[in-house]
């Protein structure tokens, strides 16, 4: 369980996080979505107690991260896969973690095996690792202490498609065991397949959050009818945002049922009516983040 409660973080006149509140619940994968510079990393660093919040509180498992006893045994963090000593071997990094958290060293081999680092690779120095290998090592490090909560910042960066699929399965399994997963990404289609819940951030503000399914469904309706202009007028009269699609038809910011009722009222025959697809959510994501980042610049 991660609870971020009205967190604001200011750097001088720049507001990196503006009254941010969200939750990541046990048994679920929560996707933290936003463009680069939206505040994802800052929010995660506040959760991990690395960055003090200017206002508000963040708790993990009901208490501030810094007060967790032996936090590596409760929370697994991967905030930056490149933040490892280049002159240390991957195996040594895990061994240090195992000693510190009091986990038997045998687990180091188990985890290296799990993330697919061969014994030879694990004995190489990290300066020779690709980003994908660093991510795998970071995931192993996060899982070392058998945590209840995972916080991963852009873990898919540098992973190949097979690696991304493997990681998705891993996170699903972790959540299925009752664990809490918070993972960030700037790519919608990378995260929507694994996340049960989405938290969308833009310009330091939460712009949308809720179950992924709902957010997907709420991303609008694509409709084509015998008289698109008339349907558009009827919908506009109900203060519903309507965008004409170049190829014909309308993109409507309402659920299909409402659009169907509007068509009935307008006496227009429907040719096509379907809920917004991935592209619709992507557009919503783009719109939300674009508008909020404009506000961010203006502020």
């Amino acid at each position: 369980m991660i609870t971020v409660d009205h967190v604001t973080k200011r750097y001088g006149s720049f507001t990196a996080l503006d009254d941010v509140s969200f939750e990541a619940r046990p048994g679920r994968v929560t996707g933290f979505l936003g463009p680069n510079g939206a505040g994802k990393t800052t929010a995660m660093r506040v959760v991990a107690g690395l960055t003090p919040a200017s206002a508000g509180t963040a708790t993990v498992l009901g208490r501030p991260y810094a007060t967790l006893p032996n936090p590596g045994r409760h929370v697994g963090l991967l905030l930056d896969a490149s933040a490892q000593h280049a002159g240390r071997t991957g195996r040594e990094v895990l061994t240090l973690g195992a000693i510190l958290t009091g986990v038997e060293r045998r687990r180091v081999d188990v985890l290296l095996d799990l993330v697919g680092l061969t014994p030879k690779e694990s004995n190489r120095r990290i300066r020779n690792y690709s980003l994908g290998m660093r991510q795998r090592l970071g995931i192993a490090h996060a899982l070392l202490g058998d945590p209840e909560v995972l916080v991963l910042d852009e873990p898919a960066n540098g992973l190949d498609p097979a690696g991304i699929r493997w990681m998705r399965g891993l996170l699903r399994d972790f959540a299925a065991r009752g664990g809490t997963v918070l993972l960030s990404s700037h790519l919608l289609n990378e995260i929507e397949r694994v996340a049960d819940d989405l938290v969308v951030i833009g310009g330091g503000r939460i712009v949308a959050s809720g179950p992924t399914e709902q957010l997907l469904a709420g991303s609008g309706t694509v409709v084509r009818s015998s008289d698109d202009a008339r349907l558009a007028a009827t919908l506009a009269a109900q203060s519903v945002t309507v965008t004409p699609v170049a190829a014909g038809g309308l993109l409507v910011d309402a659920d299909p049922g409402a659009v169907g009722r509007a068509a009935l009222a307008a006496g227009v025959a429907l040719v096509e009516l379907r809920g917004g697809d991935e592209r619709g959510l992507e557009e919503m994501f783009f719109d939300l983040t674009a508008s909020s980042s404009r506000e961010g610049v203006a502020a």
């Binding site: 048994g27 006893p69 409760h74 009091g102 799990l114 399965g169 699903r172 399994d173 009752g178």
Partner: peptide
């Protein structure tokens, strides 16, 4: 997803076995 969530805890593949014993209540 619902099926996975309802599956028994131990059947989950991939992840290593949970560590035995309670989580530490005292610091390092």
């Amino acid at each position: 997803t619902t099926v996975t969530a309802a599956a028994p805890d131990r059947a989950v593949p991939g992840l290593p076995e949970p560590l035995p014993g309670p989580r530490p209540a005292s610091g390092v």
